[in-house]
Design a protein around this nucleic acid. Structure first.
Lengths: 112, 112
DNA sequence: CAATCTATATTGCAGTACGATATAGCAAGT
DNA sequence: ACTTGCTATATCGTACTGCAATATAGATTG
């Protein structure tokens, strides 16, 4: 279980990272996140789908409907060139904040 | 410059971490963050003060007014026992998300 | 006495996580 | 036939919060 804010900060980077490995549909992405986090990242539909729509509206991902062999049809997403670029920005920002926290959580002398 | 969401996720941990080193007043905390981040963490008053009030309302910090020798009086904050406990939770949550991102950003085989 | 720095506070807007709810295809049990 | 449960996507409403804008005020410099 992670805080709402931490979820908010990591949602986009995680989804874009998953899609940078290959296309996937929404429900699949939720399960991948659940597996990757060993059950800690429990996104609900009300969290993921609006995000996917926002990412598509921003041009970071593109979508295509495909029928399923067993069950309802799926909307498959791919990361765009722009999305890949934003992911790189997200990565460096995350690393930036992480290094600040590491300074604060490191030995006392680190703070000056 | 960090995204709004990343700011949101790191604000509380950073403030609590700074206070865990010793008491400080609001304006001082803003400057400490600016220094620590080498100019990247630019919190404004509209961001910090409401946060401090929320943290105090939650019992994570306590405050005391003290006069300044040069300028307006200052409200000094200290971290409470509860605040220190929440900080530990924040730390482990951050590390948890960080490790998920490291899996995704590591070598291809890491995703399975 | 105007401008600037220090120091805190509050209002209003905009963005968003998420519970709740709706829809629909498929499979298995009773 | 009917109910339950899993798959799969969508949307509404609520609550929270970062932050620009604005206000107040003490101290210092030109």
């Amino acid at each position: 279980m992670f805080s709402k804010q931490l979820i908010a900060a990591s949602l986009q980077p995680i989804v874009l990272s998953i899609l940078s490995r290959g296309e996937a549909y929404g429900y699949e992405i939720m399960q991948r996140a659940l597996d990757l986090s060993e059950g800690k990242l429990i996104w609900t539909a009300g969290t993921l789908y609006p995000l996917m729509h926002r990412l598509e509206a921003k041009g970071l991902i593109s979508s295509i409907w495909r029928p399923s062999e067993s069950g309802p049809r799926r909307k498959y997403y791919r990361i765009t060139v722009k999305g890949a670029s934003v992911l790189e920005t997200d990565k460096s920002e995350w690393i930036g904040v992480h290094s600040i926290l590491m300074k604060l959580w490191g030995p006392e002398l680190a703070i000056g």
